[in-house]
């Protein structure tokens, strides 16, 4: 609010030549995204973001004064992330991941690095190669209700990762379970539940590399247990992404 809007493209922020954003502009965006039914997104907004189809809208502002994160009284900024489908972004890596047996893989990058896009593409390719993939799409962002996730994929959305994992394991006989952004303690529990069930795990996490990941207790536990055998590192340089497959078991 109070500054012109900007877009992030090619890894750089570009300020647009438009008038400064006012709070009513933010209200209009939120109303457009929710069909004027902001209350219906209130549970999600408490988390600081909500999804509208393939868009993820991050919300910032004056939180309700109870300090419990129950919502916002005023909005000061929005971050609209537009997901897009990119196909065959790392074909050599995906070929290696197709190998039997599947090696549990973590896709790593800092926020906004393209983890979800990469996960979507890898899931699609693995699924089309005949692997049954169970996808826990907690925020509806992976499928966006429009993306092709492959012929052998089952998507469960709007549910937390732990419940989603248990449901998928019980009812859909997945060979691989895919989930985006393992962040909360519940997400780590979900991964531990899947591990050892004979089902592969393909997930994403915020981290520049495995050393970065080790700085967090919950991830150190997963790495020490040997839950993940491989990591796909996504790096951005001069507006271009590069992908590296790293072995975590050594």
């Amino acid at each position: 609010m109070g500054r012109p809007p900007s877009i992030v493209y090619g890894g750089k922020e570009h300020r647009l030549s438009l008038p400064p954003v006012r709070e009513e502009d933010l209200q209009k965006v939120l109303q457009k995204a929710t069909g004027a039914s902001l209350y219906s997104a209130s549970q999600a907004i408490k988390q600081g973001y909500f999804c509208h189809g393939a868009l993820r809208i991050g919300v910032c502002g004056q939180a309700v004064s109870d300090g419990k994160g129950t919502g916002f009284t005023h909005y000061s900024s929005l971050c609209v992330r537009m997901a897009r489908e990119c196909r065959d972004i790392c074909p050599e890596i995906t070929e290696k991941l197709k190998a039997q047996p599947f090696s549990n893989t973590l896709i790593l990058s800092p926020p906004g690095g393209g983890k979800t896009t990469a996960l979507r593409d890898i899931v699609r390719i693995l699924s089309n190669s005949g692997r049954r993939i169970g996808i826990i799409d907690e925020r509806g962002e992976l499928s966006g209700h429009i993306y092709d996730l492959g012929e052998c994929s089952d998507v469960i959305s709007g549910i937390d990762k732990l419940k989603g994992a248990l449901l998928l394991l019980r009812s859909m006989t997945p060979q691989i379970i895919a989930a985006d952004e393992i962040t909360a303690p519940g997400d780590v529990l979900a991964v531990e539940e899947i591990f050892g069930c004979g089902t592969g795990v393909l997930a994403t996490a915020h981290a520049a590399d495995p050393d970065d990941l080790r700085k967090r207790d919950s991830y150190r536990r997963l790495l020490d247990k040997g839950v993940f055998q491989k990591a796909v590192l996504i790096r951005m340089r001069d507006g271009k992404r590069s992908y590296e497959l790293r072995d975590l078991s050594c």
């Binding site: 209200q27 902001l38 907004i45 916002f72």
Partner: peptide
């Protein structure tokens, strides 16, 4: 009705 606080709406 266009508010975000359900009890207030």
């Amino acid at each position: 009705v266009a508010g975000s606080d359900l009890p207030a709406v």
